[in-house]
Amino acid sequence: MKHTQPLPGDIGLTQISGVTGRLIRFGQWINGDGFADYEHTFLVLPGERLLEAEPGGARIRPLSEYDGSDVLYVCPKQLTEQQRERICAAADRYVGVPYSFLDYLAIATHRVHVPVPGLRRYVASSRHMICSQLVDQCYQDADVHLFSDGRWPGYVTPMALYTLLAR
């Protein structure tokens, strides 16, 4: 479900410009998500705040950081108030978790069926996450499973969230 006024528990999808954005687009492309306009994901929290994965570690910031940016806010259609509260409560556990560009490579390795021992465990680890993995993990911690297609835990990109919730 798409909407313009964000609520706690919503997922923000936005663009990243420059080299970083191009690298993420490439990472999504090699993972089968194509080239599209959403390279970054964050979780809306109460109090006009958000949780997002960053190269220096996941952090909570003011939602106003994205004022003037093109942000698409999405969430599952049947998300309840109680589920939203549990999703947001999970966010504090992940502050400081390092960002990992290597997760794009690990996800791509799985996609092309390269047998790498321990790969599933690496992708599912919450000790390092890309932005979309972070958001998906907060949902999973609240027992809200966004994907029912049998994918590995952590096997999610910003475009996978867009495809699931915005199309």
Rank of each mutant, 00 (worst) to 15 (best):
E85L: 12
T14H: 01
R151T: 03
T20P: 00
A53M: 15
A90S: 15
G12Q: 05
H128R: 15
A108Y: 02
P55C: 10
Q28T: 00
I87W: 13
R111T: 02
R61K: 15
R121F: 02
L13G: 00
G57F: 12
G34Y: 12
T4Q: 14
G27Y: 05
F26K: 01
Q82V: 06
W152P: 00
Y104C: 03
L105Q: 01
D10H: 11
R127N: 09
S125C: 05
R59L: 14
L50T: 15
F101D: 01
G47N: 14
A89G: 10
I30M: 07
K77H: 08
Q133G: 10
A166K: 03
V112Y: 14
M1I: 04
S126W: 04
E81S: 11
K77M: 03
V135K: 03
D33I: 00
R120N: 10
Y38G: 01
S126P: 10
D10Y: 11
C131R: 07
R167E: 13
D37Q: 11
G57N: 13
L43F: 09
G96T: 07
G27A: 03
E39Q: 15
C131D: 05
A108K: 03
V114W: 15
M129A: 07
Q82S: 12
F101H: 02
L63S: 09
L72P: 02
W29H: 08
L45A: 11
V123W: 06
E81A: 13
D103L: 14
T80A: 06
T157D: 03
H113E: 11
D103N: 12
T163L: 12
A160D: 06
G96P: 06
G154P: 04
Q133H: 09
D10M: 07
Y155K: 05
Q133V: 07
P158M: 05
Y73A: 02
L79M: 12
L105V: 14
T20I: 14
M159D: 02
V116C: 08
E48Q: 15
G27E: 03
S126I: 02
P117N: 04
V44G: 08
V116R: 04
I16Q: 09
R167L: 11
V44Y: 09
T163G: 03
M159L: 14
L51Y: 13
A89I: 08
I107D: 00
W152E: 10
E81F: 11
S132N: 04
M159E: 08
V112E: 06
L50H: 08
A160T: 10
C138I: 08
P46D: 09
Y99C: 05
S64H: 10
R86N: 11
C88D: 09
R61A: 15
I87T: 08
V135H: 01
L51F: 14
C131S: 13
P6Q: 03
H110R: 15
S148Y: 01
Q28V: 02
A106G: 05
L102Q: 12
D149F: 05
L102S: 09
A91L: 06
T109M: 07
S69I: 00
C75T: 10
Y66H: 12
V74D: 04
A91P: 11
M1G: 07
S17G: 13
R59Q: 15
F42R: 11
L79K: 00
G68D: 08
L161R: 02
Y38K: 10
A108Q: 00
S126E: 14
R25M: 12
V19Y: 05
L79S: 04
Q137C: 04
